[in-house]
Every structure is written in C-alpha cells, then in structure tokens.
Amino acid sequence: MAGKFEVYKDKAGKYRFRLKAGNGQIIAVGEAYESKAAVMNGIESIRGNAAAAALVDMSEADAPAPPAMR
C-alpha cells in the first residue's frame, strides 16, 4: 500500500495534515493552517519539492554547516 496524506482539523479548529507510510505509521506532520486551501497548498509544496530536496546530514558533531548557514 502506498503512503497517504490525511487532512484533519485539530482541537483548535485549525487544519493540519499528516503523512502516513503504507504500514500506517505517521512519518511527517504539518503545521496548523487557517484554511483548507492553505493546508492543501502545503501538501502540494511537499509533493513538488521533496523529490529534489538535498539531504544534509547534521548528525556528525564535526560536520561543517551547510553553505546557507555559514
């Protein structure tokens, strides 16, 4: 089964999303959005940018900072 985005309203009435893996495990959550249109734009942004996003490993103590942070 493929992963899926779930859109829902939180207790404060804000729109949120979570991304679930095929096994049902939550692997990402979004911030609170004021409108359904805004949460949908957030999901589309992730879909459009994730495949081309760089991986920056910050786990090594002596690793240099990425260029944008220098």
Rank of each mutant, 00 (worst) to 15 (best):
G48N: 15
G3E: 04
S59D: 12
K9T: 15
P64L: 10
R70L: 10
M1Y: 09
M69T: 04
I46R: 06
I26F: 01
A63Y: 05
P64Q: 12
E60N: 14
K4V: 10
K14Y: 10
E44P: 00
A61D: 11
N41T: 13
L55G: 02
V39G: 02
A12G: 04
D62Q: 12
G48R: 13
R47G: 07
M40T: 12
M40N: 13
M69K: 12
Y15T: 02
A12W: 03
G24Q: 03
I46L: 15
I26C: 07
G42C: 04
K11R: 12
A37D: 13
A54C: 03
G48Q: 15
F5R: 04
M40D: 13
G24S: 04
A61T: 08
A2R: 10
G24D: 01
F17V: 03
A68F: 15
P66K: 03
A61I: 14
M40L: 15
K36Q: 14
A63K: 10
G30W: 01
D57L: 07
R16C: 12
D57H: 06
G30L: 00
K4H: 10
E34C: 01
Y15G: 00
N41A: 14
S45N: 14
A32M: 10
G3M: 02
K11D: 13
K36I: 06
I46K: 03
A61Q: 08
G42N: 06
P66V: 05
A52P: 05
F17L: 05
E34A: 13
A12Y: 06
A12D: 08
E60S: 11
I27C: 07
V29S: 09
K20F: 03
Y33A: 02
Q25S: 11
A32H: 08
G13S: 03
N49G: 14
D57S: 06
Q25P: 00
G22P: 05
K14I: 03
P66L: 09
A51Q: 13
I43A: 07
N41I: 05
D57A: 08
L55S: 14
G24T: 03
K4L: 11
A21I: 01
M69Q: 13
A28H: 09
A50M: 14
I27T: 13
R18L: 10
A21S: 08
A2Y: 06
M1P: 11
V56G: 00
A12S: 10
Y33S: 00
I27Q: 05
P67L: 12
A28E: 12
A68M: 13
A52Y: 12
P66F: 10
R18D: 00
I43C: 11
I27W: 05
G13N: 02
G13H: 01
F17W: 14
A50E: 09
G30C: 00
M58N: 07
A65Q: 09
I27E: 06
E31V: 02
N49V: 08
F17C: 04
P67M: 07
D62P: 01
R18Y: 02
M1Q: 09
I46Q: 04
